[in-house]
Design a protein around this nucleic acid. Structure first.
Lengths: 224, 224
DNA sequence: TTTTTTCCTTGACAAAAGTTAAGGGAAGGC
DNA sequence: GCCTTCCCTTAACTTTTGTCAAGGAAAAAA
């Protein structure tokens, strides 16, 4: 068993396949490499695949008719993505785009479907995975329906430093990136960041954001 | 086979069970009746069940910390609902509330799980069902992220008269109901309705809404 | 190093949406 | 028939958000 097969055998769905299947999962997959900016799949396309991300980062985001983009989540190394088309053969509702150089494994529906029919335990794990994604979608809806941009920004920042001790955040994302994640505009995000600073909540410069009052941010996330 | 069993045997998931199972589905279920305003399940509760709505109407909606409500969709007679907790035993992300007097059938996880393990075809149909719900969630996010309230209202109105010939809509919902569906407030909805009227798109009075320019509404749904 | 490009920052303005308050009409209960 | 309750409607005002434009700093390319 090679290294990648060990990793795959631990995945939340694949681990319910028997060892003899797990040993061959990597063979069933198609390796894909993407440059930064390339798309793995595009909104509107029928794309019945499952993805394991080995390295890089993928952004799952929707495009509006007016050309705006809204990021729903990013996929990090070690995570898997189950495309909508895989289950219902309908067009994809959003796009998967490489935001860093990407290496991934891709399985087609044809290859996996027989396995699922044979090992229902794995399929049950798929429903749990889909349910978790629905819960994430629920959080996004909650933010958009109930919170102003300031609240969503506060949540975004808190998300970026889950590490308890760490109080300084390197600004590796652009304002545009943040705007796409918050469904707003770079100017508004910038304005709010400086507003937070003027309220003593954070301290920012061009490269870093330092947290001075994490509680204030947490309060903003829902009460505002 | 009684009438209800015929109906259940045609449902998108249940139809993949063999006849001998279908014949007993109704027995496995618990019948529930709800008065208007009662809850079938509440946000935060662990509620591992599946619902078939015989009559009435259920509203699936989230409650914010500040006490606002946002309706995600309504369940109409003949439709089924698969609770999140059913798949992952985690708390429900929203509530199911009777907006009309309700009669429903409810199956517990305990009862159905063995069947799914045995009949993977049915479980595959579940993944397709979950995927469709994710697509609906995607449309909600699209509306909130990209469209102003006017656009969402236009879409809401068009949804209410899918019948091509019919150009008049009885106002059976309150402004409050519409606001809850659009994640806005009754006053804003009212204002927009009269704005649409002043633009010659619709004609409204206390009890009806008449469509004069359906195309204008369709244009509002995305371009605004 | 110089030049170009990208990104950040800010101000001014406009549009959209939320909120509060008040008055009036309709439906249902008494 | 009267009264209560619920709902609709509108105005005035505030807050939030979006947009446009301009200047400047940093990073990347030449």
């Amino acid at each position: 068993m090679t290294n990648i097969e060990h990793v795959l055998a631990e995945q939340e769905v694949f681990r319910y396949f028997p060892p003899e299947v797990q040993n061959h999962l990597a063979e069933y997959a198609l390796p894909r490499k993407l440059e930064r900016g390339e798309y793995l799949c595009r909104q509107g396309e029928i794309w019945p695949y499952v993805v394991y991300l080995s390295s890089g980062q993928l952004r799952w985001s929707m495009l509006s008719a007016a050309g705006k983009e809204h990021q729903l989540f990013v996929l990090d190394p070690g995570e898997m993505f189950w495309a909508h088309s895989f289950f219902d053969d309908q067009p994809m509702p959003a796009s998967l785009k490489a935001v860093k150089e990407v290496e991934a494994l891709v399985w087609s529906q044809d290859r996996l479907l027989p396995l699922f029919k044979r090992y229902p335990e794995a399929l049950w794990a798929v429903t749990a995975k889909l349910t978790r994604i629905m819960r994430e979608a629920r959080e996004i809806i909650y933010g958009l329906a109930f919170q102003p941009v300031a609240g969503r920004l506060a949540g975004y920042l808190l998300d970026k430093i889950k590490v308890p001790g760490q109080e300084t955040l390197e600004r590796e994302m652009t304002l545009e990136d943040m705007a796409v994640a918050l469904a707003s505009s770079p100017e508004v995000v910038c304005r709010l960041l400086y507003q937070f600073q003027s309220e003593g909540i954070i301290k920012i410069n061009r490269t870093q954001i330092t947290f001075h009052d994490r509680e204030a941010l947490e309060k903003l996330v829902d009460l505002s």
